[in-house]
Nucleic acid binder design. Structure first.
Length: 583
DNA sequence: CTAGGGTTAG
């Protein structure tokens, strides 16, 4: 402890250290000492204490100090508002911000960014507009902090054009303003804009415009669009700038490699970074689960626990997903139960994954009982998971029952629409099938086209079912014919039992015969070097027969084929699906 | 001293 003669400056210095190293017990001790000395009413000491409690995640202690402090200055307000904002209490932060205004204090360069942060968290447009107006009126909106926070706020509220406007009007920009806008574009799926802006940032000297935040945002764009070649170049840049050791960058890199079908690249990144945060563990777990490296998923989870990293709800989603991918029902139940021991309440996504697991395993009754036991209203994806199970097991009675439940919910996303009308059609309930289609048409939801793509060097070849637009269409179809004969000779028989009846005439036979994967794979056979696996990416679920067909293709051609089905990867080798035969 | 940005899932 400090000697009694020490003045408040020394106490503040110690408080800064304790805050920085988040030493709560020592801080509490010092606080007691401060009270004993009667220093609590000194503004400087009080502000430090408020900040200390904010950084140690005790915002209500900050609040208490604030309330009992008599001469509240702008700094006092700013400290307490920030305490709420940084501890996920955006409503409270904004309430105190408004209260401050009512006390006749104007927002400044310090209070405004905290308020915008809370507004961004709530994604509230009216608040965003009034904060912008306040910035123009009272705060120095040319300030780089104020400007950046407005960019970020608009980006997070989805008003990207306003974000751009503020950005363009900023006389001095820093890496935060650049990153904020790039992140905003990437969030809205405006990949081209995001990448263009990134290129702009690189053209200027990138020391000030590019950092780990920027790089992870750009990497996210690359993985969302499976731009593997570009992603690898960005990885090079991460290495060059030493940002590859950042957990955030590493997490994005792991996700990039995984989503591009090269999980080995993800392992390498993971191994190279020794100090790992939760996000990074989760990224690696997700990669393993998606690629059905199931044993490795469980191993990593154990390792994570042994080095003292606590799992969160995402970690358990990964584990359940891994179980669902491998068909491990008992293991899935085990992890589902383990969540409570870790103090994590299962969310609707966890339920959806459990239902998916049970449904795929054919335990439709049990899956339904899980839904009945949910403490919240089942979401569309929960019912959708059950419907997928019905489809896989061709259970039309269950399918039509589930379809009714989904139908009752009203609004349905495009992902489920075909499943829904097919379920009715399969049960012979043609009126409902037509009504489902009509309802979806009225809502303006179109059936998404299933696209596959194969990256070859710097080129990306995309294919759709029955597509003839590719330059080498003739060769591809010839190869496909040849392949068809080969696999038929090897014993392949097209299996149509899994497909619920289509309403649109002969779409079914088209789906089987000329499915896009097979086009893409056929093309892959023409161009890809023998020693590398062929990777086929796909943006929609594929099912049943493709699985069988690809098995035969891998057998007849001796090629390793990795297929991405939504975010599930399947590895085919020598006529087998080596990741658990669980499509 | 008090102030702004990110990652991982679906």
């Amino acid at each position: 402890m400090l000697p009694p003669q020490s003045d408040c400056r020394d106490i503040c210095k110690v408080l800064v250290c304790l805050t920085h190293s988040r030493l709560l017990p020592k801080g509490l001790q010092l606080h007691a000492y401060v009270i004993k000395l009667g220093f609590e009413t000194l503004p400087l000491v009080c502000h430090h204490l408020i900040n200390f409690y904010s950084k140690t995640n005790l915002p209500h202690s900050s609040h208490k100090l604030f309330d009992s402090f008599p001469q509240k200055s702008a700094t006092t307000w700013s400290s307490v508002i920030s305490a709420f904002a940084q501890n996920d209490l955006p409503h409270l932060a904004l309430r105190f911000f408004r209260r401050m205004l009512r006390h006749g204090l104007l927002p400044d360069d310090h209070t405004l960014p905290t308020a915008t942060k809370s507004c961004a968290a709530l994604s509230s447009l009216p608040t965003a507009h009034s904060l912008h107006a306040l910035a123009l009126k009272s705060a120095n909106h040319f300030d780089v902090f104020v400007g950046s926070s407005l960019v970020d706020m608009y980006a997070k509220c989805g008003e990207i054009n306003n974000a751009r406007k503020v950005f363009d009007e900023m006389p001095h920009k820093n890496v935060v303003s650049w990153s904020g806008l790039i992140y905003g574009y990437s969030q809205l799926g405006l990949d081209e804009e995001a990448l263009n802006l990134f290129k702009c940032a690189l053209q200027q000297d990138y020391d000030i415009r590019v950092n780990d935040f920027t790089l992870s945002s750009v990497l996210r764009v690359c993985s969302a669009s499976t731009l593997f070649e570009l992603g690898k170049q960005v990885h090079g840049l991460c290495f060059k700038t030493s940002f590859d050791s950042s957990c955030f960058v590493a997490s994005s890199l792991i996700s990039l490699y995984s989503k591009c079908g090269v999980v080995e690249g993800g392992y390498k990144v993971f191994e190279e970074v020794k100090v790992r945060n939760l996000g990074m563990w989760n990224a690696m777990l997700i990669a393993c689960a998606q690629h059905a490296h199931t044993g490795k998923t469980f191993e990593l989870f154990e390792e994570m626990g042994s080095v003292g990293v606590k799992p969160n709800f995402i970690t358990f989603l990964c584990l359940l997903y891994a179980c669902s991918h491998a068909g491990l029902v008992e293991r899935g139940k085990h992890y589902f139960g383990l969540m409570k021991e870790h103090g994590i309440e299962p969310g609707s996504q966890h339920y959806a994954t459990m239902v998916d697991l049970l449904g795929r395993a054919g335990k439709l009754d049990e899956a339904f009982r899980v839904i009945e036991g949910m403490p919240m209203e089942p979401t569309e994806s929960v019912w959708g998971a059950l419907l997928t199970g019905c489809r896989i097991h061709g259970n039309t009675e269950w399918a039509s029952f589930v379809a009714d439940r989904i139908f009752e919910m009203g609004a349905v996303s495009s992902g489920i629409n075909v499943l829904l009308s097919n379920a009715y059609a399969a049960a012979g309930r043609w009126e409902e099938a037509a009504r489902a289609r009509k309802m979806l048409r009225d809502q303006g939801i179109k059936k998404e086209t299933g696209l596959s793509w194969v990256e070859e060097g710097n080129r990306v070849h995309t294919f759709a079912a029955g597509d003839r637009s590719h330059g080498k269409t003739k060769e591809i179809y010839e190869k496909l014919e040849e392949l068809g004969e080969k696999i038929a000779k090897a014993g392949y028989v097209a299996d149509t039992s899994f497909v619920l009846k289509e309403v649109d005439g002969d779409e079914k036979s088209q789906t089987i015969r000329y499915h896009s994967e097979r086009l893409a794979i056929a093309f892959g056979l023409i161009t890809f070097p023998q020693e590398r696996p062929i990777r086929v990416m796909k943006n929609l679920r594929v099912c049943g027969d493709c699985h069988t067909a690809i098995k035969f293709i891998s057998k007849c051609t001796g090629r390793v084929i990795i297929v991405r089905d939504n975010n599930r990867f399947h590895r085919f080798e020598e006529g087998k699906c080596t990741c658990g035969d669980y499509w």
